[in-house]
Simulated scan of single mutants.
Amino acid sequence: MNIHSLKKDINQFDAWYHKLIFLVDVNEKIKTEIPLLDRYERINVNRVVSEGLLSIPKQRYPMYVEELLKQVFKDIERIYLLQHIDILFDQALQIHPIRLLENLSKTYKLIVEWPGRYVGSQLIYAEHEHPEYFVCGDFEGKVYIK
């Protein structure tokens, strides 16, 4: 990963329509230890969404996920580092994780730790046989491989 390119892109976020960067670990062990990222607010998406949906009927989950995340994004000038996003692939949510992140990135500056692979211009989550298997090659934002 080229830290200078990453820093440059982060500094240019305001000029982007989708302010979205995906960090992908080549070993699929997302544990971002990049000093540059220490200054950004870390959001544990699994915790935010799971706690927020506790009192919501399952059939209404899709209507609440985006709002739950917006509640933690308090400042449009701040950069948010989204970690532990695995819950977004849960079929019970009935959402497209990339489209959700793209939509949020129109307003908020997001750096996302991708818990999967990046192969052939596609972001991949889980293995093909897994019920939460997800592939997306049509997305906005930049990918950095660590």
Rank of each mutant, 00 (worst) to 15 (best):
R42A: 12
G120N: 08
G116I: 04
H96A: 03
N103Q: 09
I95M: 09
V112C: 02
M63F: 15
E41T: 13
E41A: 10
V48I: 15
N44H: 14
R78N: 12
R78L: 14
Y118F: 10
E33Q: 11
L54F: 13
L101F: 03
V45R: 10
Q83I: 09
L53F: 12
R47Y: 14
M63V: 06
Y118R: 06
P97M: 06
P62D: 01
Y118E: 03
E77H: 14
S121T: 01
P57Y: 13
P62L: 07
E41N: 08
Q91G: 08
I87H: 11
F89G: 02
Y118I: 03
L69A: 01
E66H: 12
K106I: 05
E129G: 09
N44W: 12
I79C: 11
L36D: 03
L36A: 04
V112Y: 03
A126S: 13
L68V: 11
L123C: 04
E127F: 05
D86K: 11
I85H: 01
A126G: 00
I56P: 08
L68K: 09
N46P: 09
K109H: 04
I124L: 00
I87Q: 12
L88G: 07
I34T: 08
V72T: 14
K106C: 05
Y61K: 06
Y133T: 07
E77W: 13
Q59C: 08
R60D: 15
L101W: 00
G116K: 04
I124C: 00
Y80C: 05
Q59S: 14
E67D: 15
L100W: 06
L100T: 02
H130M: 02
K106S: 01
K74N: 09
I124R: 05
Q122F: 05
E77K: 15
R42T: 12
L123N: 02
L81T: 02
I85Q: 00
N44R: 11
L110C: 01
I95C: 05
L53M: 11
L69M: 15
I79T: 14
Y108K: 03
E129C: 05
P62A: 08
R99E: 06
S105Q: 03
L123H: 05
E132R: 12
A126L: 04
I111P: 06
L101Q: 03
I85W: 07
Q94C: 02
P57V: 13
E51L: 15
I79V: 14
I56V: 15
Y118S: 00
D75A: 10
V65I: 15
A92K: 15
E102R: 01
E77I: 10
V112E: 03
L68C: 07
I76C: 12
M63N: 15
Y125M: 01
L68T: 08
L82N: 07
I56R: 09
I124V: 01
R47H: 10
P97D: 06
Y64D: 07
E33R: 11
Q71V: 11
I34E: 10
Q83H: 12
L82F: 11
F134Q: 03
L100G: 01
K58D: 10
V45W: 13
E77G: 15
L36R: 07
D38Q: 13
